[in-house]
């Protein structure tokens, strides 16, 4: 039997429609603990990333003491292999690592999202060609592929962003195409075609608004993935290059401390982990909300 879905409830609320902000706050209030935790984590990171210069005692790549100094009042988390303040670099790292990952993800979504939707709308040969190209690109593990491309083009931040964005856009393409295919078969898209609407209208007005929820969730997941890939590349010494502070290379530079039982190098790694955990918690909640998974059994 079909439950009479949200129709009834919303007809009542339609009379006095609460503001979007109000609704969002109400949803937040009902969110599970893990999601609230995720939101707090993400907000904290955003705050640090935005205000890093005001929160740090020293400059990003300023050498302030000897290498590997211990935690003290002067150097909150000690100093790194070159004698730079760890705490300062940790906060600046938020800015660089998150910023680059965010730009990369946005670019990946721009490329993959638009081509994916177009492939679904156009169908036929255009779809075949785009999909096969993506199949082949995806047949090479992305980390390996980016290693190959970085060898060829050398390591710099713009190259890094473009390479990872392009490789990651294949995943976005797949998802965007798959969810768009579900929308493209809808009668309202057929109606728009029969009305004589152009490609831009169908893409932006008919399809895009209807695939936003899965795309938004995917954005969170992709961001995590990109973030981890960039951290991994930096850790391998192939990502963000010194003296820019970034968490992956901070782990690499100070890894020797671990063999002395010092946890300092784990802090940037932990910072990466915590943010991805936070984002994942939010995405998990969002997915459960939007897929309407009502638990039973």
């Amino acid at each position: 039997m079909k439950l009479d879905s949200p129709t009834n409830l919303s007809t009542h609320t339609a009379v006095i429609r609460p503001s979007k902000l109000n609704l969002a706050l109400r949803e937040l209030w009902k969110a599970p603990l893990s999601a609230k935790l995720g939101i707090i984590i993400v907000l904290a990171y955003v705050f640090v990333a935005l205000f890093a210069p005001w929160l740090t005692p020293y400059g990003e790549s300023e050498i302030v003491g000897g290498p590997f100094e211990l935690w003290s009042e002067k150097y909150l988390l000690g100093t790194d292999n070159l004698g730079r303040d760890m705490f300062t670099r940790l906060l600046y790292g938020a800015r660089n690592t998150i910023g680059i990952a965010l730009i990369t993800t946005l670019l990946a979504f721009f490329i993959g999202g638009i081509t994916g939707i177009l492939a679904a709308i156009l169908g036929g040969w255009a779809d075949q060609i785009m999909s096969r190209v993506v199949d082949v690109l995806m047949a090479i593990p992305s980390l390996i592929f980016s290693l190959l491309l970085l060898t060829i083009f050398g390591t710099s931040i713009p190259v890094l962003i473009v390479i990872i964005a392009v490789l990651d856009s294949t995943r976005v393409f797949r998802l965007a195409r798959a969810v768009s295919l579900n929308v493209v078969v809808m009668d309202y898209v057929e109606a728009a075609r029969l009305r004589g609407e152009g490609l831009a209208w169908i893409t932006l007005r008919e399809v895009l608004p209807n695939i936003m929820p899965p795309l938004v969730a995917e954005f969170g997941l992709r961001f995590c993935f990109v973030f981890l890939t960039i951290a991994a590349l930096s850790f391998l010494g192939l990502g963000i290059q010194p003296p820019t502070a970034d968490w992956g290379s901070m782990v690499r530079d100070n890894a020797t401390l671990i063999s002395y039982g010092d946890v300092t190098p784990l802090l940037p790694a932990g910072a990466i982990a915590l943010l991805t955990v936070g984002v994942n918690f939010i995405v998990d909640w969002f997915l459960q909300k939007t897929s309407g998974l009502k638990d039973g059994q």
């Binding site: 009668d187 309202y188 057929e190 109606a191 209807n210």
Partner: peptide, 25 residues
Amino acid sequence: QRSKDQLRQVQMIYQMADTAINPRQ
């Protein structure tokens, strides 16, 4: 290949009204 006016003259109503109108408009 049809003109706007030719398209206008023949309209369609579908079985599933749910899927015939865009839920986001």
